[in-house]
Write a protein that binds this DNA or RNA. Structure first.
Lengths: 216, 216
DNA sequence: AAGAAAAACAGGGAAAATCCTTAATCCCGA
DNA sequence: TCGGGATTAAGGATTTTCCCTGTTTTTCTT
């Protein structure tokens, strides 16, 4: 019987890892490495030269010339259907998020057990993504505000104003809604600009978002 | 031998479920239901009355008086150390995200297998969170832009302008940075207001965030 | 190279936002 | 009841934003 072979490309500048990964993956049932590249630029060339796209790309992050972030962004823009698994030495949450935001379907640490790699490859083909525990945790952190950090204490009216200022209402409209004089609203505004150290309303919006006072 | 018993509170307005959940949880090794509430308000009262906080709360979402979202927000604000597992009939991604953003440590569907519940309780005590596959997927979706959806096509300059407009710069400053006349910038601005159907700069920022043109 | 289309620029004016200073008004505790 | 802090608000000046319309310049097409 002949199983469908999923094509895999490896993008990594470490030849040793790259070669051994190929052997390993070829030993997995259902997967076949079709080509390598040592950085993003080279991958672009190979993709353009080949007439078939790989189904999966294992993408290293730290590479010369064109690194994993750039490469990931390019792939999302031009070949969003390829399932990319990011491959890295470090488990830095920001790095993980950066890759996922650019469209990576999963994130693998280079020191994982071979079985985990096989599992990840299968998962990404079946479900479209692979989540290690570390990735799951990172994602949760990324959306959960830090409830223990002390927040600036807003007076109720001030808070209401801040929230309304993050809409497309004019200050006059806000004053109407809050049943206050436009001049009072102007007072809140000045106060907040000073306290939050922002220059204009855009600054307010950004602040409110960063501090989970509003969410979109 | 006496294992440490983790205290669990159940907040649900369906008596039948609530009661049977208690029996189930008490049958798990290491967990003990300490009290019930049929909505958030009642929970608040019980928490204030009791001298000990539960370690875990199973929190229903659809409840009268004070629903799960409000309750979750209150808990995060006042008792951030309690591990809350949200409990719901529906697996709507927005609902899941809403609860997680408010600080829930996990999300359970009401029709899960009892073993899963036990697993979730253990996970939340050991790791601080519990991730079902659905939750993991939801989280990934929440940070990954949809690369397949067609985006409004921005001209390079227009895109640059949009990004800069999301900072605290004035239009004049943006014009300087982009080496264009303020009047040209004003043209971009008008154009975008019309095309994106927004009323002011706050609208631009919100749009840019929603469409992953900028991220904070 | 002429015409069409796109991009850059401009004038003028109304509305809104921004900035600064000062002042009633209310509420609470000594 | 007095004083002080917080809240609300005023006047007034300046800048920025917003909107409509039209012109020049550049770029592309054929």
């Amino acid at each position: 019987m002949s199983l469908k072979q999923h094509s895999v490309a490896i993008v990594d500048d470490h030849l040793l890892l790259s070669e051994s990964l190929e052997k390993l993956i070829n030993s997995f049932e259902g997967f076949k490495v079709v080509y390598h590249a040592s950085n993003g630029k080279e991958l672009q060339k190979k993709i353009k030269a080949a007439n078939k796209l790989p189904e999966i790309i294992l993408l290293d992050i730290n590479m010369p010339v064109m690194d994993g972030f750039e490469t990931m962004a390019w792939l999302s823009e031009n070949h969003p259907d390829i399932n990319v698994l990011a491959l890295s030495m470090e488990d830095d949450e920001n790095v993980i998020l950066k890759m996922l935001k650019r469209g990576a379907k999963g994130y693998l640490l280079k020191d994982i057990h071979p079985d985990k790699l096989q599992y990840a490859l299968n998962e990404v083909m079946e479900r479209g993504y692979y989540h290690s525990d570390k990735v799951a945790e990172t994602l949760l952190h990324s959306i959960q505000p830090d409830f223990n950090k002390e927040k600036i204490n807003f007076k109720p009216n001030e808070l209401t104003f801040l929230q309304l200022a993050c809409s497309e209402m004019t200050y006059k409209e806000i004053a109407d809604v809050m049943n206050l004089s436009p001049k009072t609203i102007d007072g809140y505004r000045q106060d907040l600009f000073n306290r939050l150290n922002v220059k204009n309303r855009v600054g307010l919006v950004i602040y409110a978002l960063k501090n989970n006072i509003i969410s979109i």
